[in-house]
Simulated assay, not measured.
Amino acid sequence: MTQAATAKTGEQFDTLFMTPMRAYGALNLETAEKLMATQFGIAESLSEATLAQARDWLSVKSAEDVQKTLEGQQQAMQSLGDRLKSDAATLLSLGQDYVQKSQKLAEQQFKALGSQ
């Protein structure tokens, strides 16, 4: 009888605590991975744009080159602005997805508690 009670207690502990903790841990890890990937993408884009502009300025030899470089800078800034807007939407979506999944996990946890 003691083994059966111990097994039942272990089962309940796993159902009520360990399984939800694993699910939250997996959700947090997944979200952190997506967040870091987005942040690295942003950093890479900014770095590439900055280096490209530096190369353009190093190749300036005339007034016409200055004009072309300034126009290139405007285009680069527009492109970066579009990228940042897209990345902001991605981050917002990531946050909303995290909240929805967390709520779903919490609901499942409450149902599991109610059935015990």
Rank of each mutant, 00 (worst) to 15 (best):
R83D: 09
L70E: 13
S102C: 07
R83S: 09
T50W: 08
Q108W: 02
D65E: 00
I42M: 03
A88S: 10
I42V: 02
L94C: 03
G10I: 00
A52R: 14
K61T: 14
A23W: 05
S47R: 12
A37Y: 11
E33N: 09
D97F: 02
L27N: 02
E107D: 14
K61Q: 09
F13Y: 08
G41S: 00
T38Y: 05
L46W: 07
L35G: 12
A112C: 00
S86C: 10
T15N: 07
A7S: 05
M18H: 15
Q108T: 08
G95L: 02
E64I: 05
T38S: 13
S115A: 06
L91D: 06
W57K: 02
Q74G: 13
L80A: 03
L35S: 10
F40P: 07
A37E: 09
E48L: 10
T90N: 06
S45W: 10
K85P: 12
G81Y: 00
A32G: 11
Q108S: 07
L94N: 05
K8G: 07
A54C: 11
A88G: 11
M36A: 12
Q103K: 08
E48N: 13
E64H: 01
A37I: 10
I42L: 01
Q109C: 06
L35P: 12
D82S: 04
S115W: 02
Q3L: 15
T2G: 11
A43N: 05
K61M: 09
Q39C: 03
S86E: 15
D82G: 01
A32N: 07
F17T: 14
Q96C: 00
A76H: 03
G72I: 00
Q53K: 11
L92I: 13
F13P: 08
Q116S: 15
L105N: 10
D97E: 14
K34Y: 03
K34R: 04
M36G: 06
T50S: 15
F17G: 11
I42H: 00
S59W: 13
L92V: 15
E64Y: 04
S102R: 06
K68P: 01
T50V: 11
Q73E: 12
L92W: 14
L113G: 02
L94R: 07
E107K: 09
Q96M: 08
L27T: 00
M36D: 14
R22Q: 08
S45R: 14
E33G: 09
F110M: 15
S62P: 03
A4D: 09
L58M: 15
E64F: 07
A32K: 08
D82L: 04
A54Y: 10
T38C: 12
